[in-house]
Every structure is written in structure tokens, then in C-alpha cells.
Design a protein around this nucleic acid. Sequence first.
DNA 1: ACCTAATTGCAAATCTCTTGCAATTATAAA
DNA 2: TTTATAATTGCAAGAGATTTGCAATTAGGT
Lengths: 139, 139
Amino acid sequence: MKSTIDEDLRAAGHRLTRTRRAVLGVLERTKYPLSASELYERLQKNKVSIDLVTVYRTLTVLRDLGVVAQIELHKEGQARFEIRHGREHHHHIRCQVCGRIADLLLCPLKKLTAFIEKETQFIVNEHTLEFSGLCPKCQ
Amino acid sequence: MKSTIDEDLRAAGHRLTRTRRAVLGVLERTKYPLSASELYERLQKNKVSIDLVTVYRTLTVLRDLGVVAQIELHKEGQARFEIRHGREHHHHIRCQVCGRIADLLLCPLKKLTAFIEKETQFIVNEHTLEFSGLCPKCQ
DNA sequence: ACCTAATTGCAAATCTCTTGCAATTATAAA
DNA sequence: TTTATAATTGCAAGAGATTTGCAATTAGGT
Ligand SMILES: [Mn+2]
Ligand SMILES: [Mn+2]
Ligand SMILES: [Zn+2]
Ligand SMILES: [Zn+2]
């Protein structure tokens, strides 16, 4: 039933290279979604030399495979990515002052999605749900 | 109780100029959120000559005043704006094929917001909720 | 009419993300 | 192992959206 990331990549004709392993490693170790440039910085700290372009291309591949999720937070101007493989679908809240992002381990949109499909006659494939406000420290 | 857009602008030390009136006019007449460049094109068709930079600056002012809402749809890469003043808070669904955007005249997040505030200790100020899928014509 | 602050246009800069292309590398067939 | 083929990567350049600097214009109040 469940496949490994390596299997997912190979099934699509891709390879799990050293650089991809490094990108996945950083994402696995981080508990909130990272932007491409943040990821790039962390790789450099880890003495892993990968061009920023390669980070983007890697994220595109992993996102298209469904291994990582692309998340766009309100007014951030840059996409963020986090591991999706083997994790529960969830949403986030972001502090407008310090930028801290916390997971919301829930999704309340099952019923609403069915309702919207009936009302609009659209087929709903995706949704984004994001909150922002003030974290405990910044209040 | 209710203020006019003109009053809102003046209260903040701004002026309701001809160009701002033109921007607001286009937004009033359009039933879905427009990007800055779309707005710019429509102004040109209306023989209103306003620089794209001015469109951006106008939208920033109106957004900060709460007169228009800034909406970011998943993977669109550009912000959209629609009149908020005097309208009900609501959300949208976008067709992944033709790009058509429809209003969803609902918001199911009152209770969830209270729950999240209790759970995370954040104060929630904003949320974004967006759906995407296939519209009836593109299925 | 005069003063001051707000507004605007134009050019240039930023930021994020993508593309072209040649060099490198992984994988598997021969 | 050698060879062929396709995937991967880096570097330079390009694109698209949005912002900034600055001088010229304009709106409103006194
Ligand atoms: Mn998360
Ligand atoms: Mn709307
Ligand atoms: Zn969800
Ligand atoms: Zn809502």
C-alpha cells in the first residue's frame, strides 16, 4: 500500500540523488514549511553545495509527485514547502509579527467541499486554508 | 454606523482623486477579483490613462484601509483585489483549466477560529480559504 | 492666491521563480 | 566493463510581479 519516496521517484523515471536526499533531509528535520531560499541557506550550513536553481527544480519534482506540499501564506510573496509523504493533511497559522508558523493538525472541510460541489457544480480538487494573527509571544 | 469610501479615505488623510475613482469604478463593475495588470488593462480600455505603478499604489492604499480585499489564489503568482466595502465576507473557487473564479458566498470558520485560538493561544486576525478544481464547462 | 502634503509618472531596482544550454552523472542494455 | 541514453546539475540569462527613488503635478485648507 504505502510506497517509499525512493519508489515514488523511480516510478516516475526520476532518481534519488545525493542532492535530492539532502533537500529531503532538511525538510524532514524542519517542523514548519520552508521557502526555497531558506532551504538553500540550510543546505549551505550543512556544507551541502547545491545551486538555488537546483533547489527549485527539486522542489518542483517532489511537489508534482505529491511528496512535498507547496504552501502559500497570505502576503508572503514566496512559496513554502513541507513533507507530505506519510503525514496527515493539515493547515497552518502564521504570526504577523515574528513570522512563526505553527501546524494546525486538522481539516474541517470535508462536508463543506461536498456542499460546494453541489452548489457550484465545480469538481473540487484542492483547497488552501490559512490563518494569521499574533502568537503568544507577540501579543 | 456605515461610512462611505470617500470618508474612509479622508479620515486617513487621503484624497479621492479621479484616478482612485476610476480604479474603484472598475472594481465595482467586476464580479470577481482582478489583478493589478488586469485592472490596468481595463482602465486603458476605458480611456483612463493611469500608470501601472499608480494602480499598485492605489490598491495598497485601498487595501490598507480595508476598502478592498487582497486575494491570493493558489499558484497564481499574482495578487487579486475586489471591493470589500459594504460587501459580505466570502471566499472563492477557481477553475484550474480556464481560470474562471466564482464567489462562494459563505464562511464556515467562526467556530473553528475560536477553537484555534483556544488551542494555539494565537489571536487570529485573518484567514484565507480558497478552493480550486474544474468548473462545469471544463470537466 | 499661497502653502504644504498627497499624488502621480517614469525609470530603475528587487524579489521570486523559470528557462536555455552545455557539462556531468546515473542506469541499464550490450 | 564498455556504451548508449536519459536524467541531473550549475551557471548565466530571462520573466513576471511588485516596490522604490525622485522630481513634477495637483488637491485642499488657510
Ligand atoms: Mn505543516
Ligand atoms: Mn468575491
Ligand atoms: Zn484541508
Ligand atoms: Zn472566511
